[in-house]
Nucleic acid binder design. Structure first.
Lengths: 236, 236
DNA sequence: ACAAAAGTGTTCGCACTACACCCATGC
DNA sequence: GCATGGGTGTAGTGCGAACACTTTTGT
């Protein structure tokens, strides 16, 4: 802890502390992550990067992450949890910056306009057959490849986390509107996990779990209407 | 991230960054945690606290935690993982300090002398019937009660983590010598989980898992000798 | 009537739980 | 021979995995 110095010990100067937020959503069966464009100046000029920013003196990293989420994605009161802290001394080539990474889950209906000053876009996170991830960065001419800083590592860590967590914590509903059909819920699971799920097993498991409750309404579509469900509790 | 300023933006000054390490060991069926004594000066004068210290400019938090572990507990090359980052603005009343907490698992045979300048002691972590934790702090006269800073929260987070992790990752062997008996392993599990385990179920589960291999040696004692085992891999 | 998505049950194997007695050794 | 910890098996139950066809609606 803090014993080695009282005010400032020159061997241990304060460091830059930032938050980076991996914002996920699922649309049309695809897992999407929000990326922003780096400025035209080095380092990583014009690369894509995770939204993030420095922590202010009077706020926790949780608050800084929530603030970033509002500023860059235009959303509030969404699922947001700490992921991991990345601290390699050279992760930012300009100066020492420790990044406390967060991940957020946002349902498409809560996505507002993106008020960010620089462009922010939703990119699909795909899974190769060998388990490797790839982000579908647009291949504009002369577009730099790869994510800025160590953001590819942060993204991979975040995807691993939500996949592991999805299997034993009901976080899937964070990516859906309050009312949903079982097929919609299954599509979310499949998008996050990157693999298909058996429909009958999925449905019986969810119904037995007591996590969801059937409503008296249906979603009409071009075919047979689907029963609507809601989660029994929005907190857990 | 770094985009908001290049060198230094006065709204986002650098912050103190420290590591705190929750070092666990198991001895005689008791889960122990290493605590150090705060100095005689505020804040938290003479309170017990987790070992920790500031992060140097040229090291990662992983390296800082390993360095702390060597300095305060006298051990190297032990299991050490990042736990969580604690960042409440007022968690250190003197100045803003963000703490990246780690937890370590050390087997008793690897514990060396404690080279720390101030006293460090192993305190038992017990579990009440209602699930609450308690640390058996020595009740010296005029001894301040409770851990310094937010260290009670960090400890509780660490205990929850190793309990959850023990059930699906083989971390138990980190707390044992390379060769061990099944009873010794079971005692470790019971100490960490804070509850008793059925002997037959425990043994059949471990043997079926393939994680351990029986050796041709036995541990002699005052009674029937016990077969010795080792873990099939020391990495996972 | 046809296309498309919704909805539904059974079997099988495995893992977890509960539970009680004999065995090998030192003293 | 006795005290002490080491070592073993079975029955019951619940959960996840595999697997294919019928139903309902819109067009």
């Amino acid at each position: 802890m803090v014993e080695l110095h009282t005010a400032r010990d020159p061997r241990f100067p304060p460091l830059g502390v930032a938050v980076d937020v991996v914002v996920f959503t699922v649309q049309e069966g695809r897992l999407l992550v929000l990326l922003t464009r780096r400025p035209d100046t080095p380092p990583f000029a014009q690369h894509w990067s995770l939204p993030g920013g420095f922590v202010a003196p009077n706020e926790s990293t949780d608050e800084a992450a929530a603030r970033e989420l509002g500023a860059k994605a235009g959303v509030q009161d969404v699922f947001l949890e700490q992921l991991y802290t990345f601290s390699a001394p050279d992760r930012d080539p300009r100066s020492r910056v420790v990044s406390v990474a967060y991940y957020a889950l946002v349902s498409p209906d809560r996505l507002g306009d993106q008020p960010g000053a620089r462009p922010a876009h939703w990119m699909q996170v795909g899974t190769h057959a060998d388990g490797e991830l790839h982000v579908d960065l647009p291949l504009e001419p002369a577009m730099p490849q790869g994510l800025a800083f160590d953001h590819a590592l942060i993204l991979r860590t975040a995807v691993d986390r939500i996949r592991g967590k999805l299997e034993y914590v009901p976080i899937g509903f964070q990516l859906l509107e309050p009312q949903f059909t079982l097929t919609e819920l299954q599509k979310v699971y499949e998008a996050v996990l990157g693999q298909e799920i058996d429909k009958r097993n999925f449905r019986s498991r969810l119904l037995k779990s007591g996590l969801i409750r059937q409503l008296d309404a249906v979603r009409k579509g071009p075919h047979r209407p689907a029963k609507l469900f809601e989660f029994t509790s929005r907190t857990f």
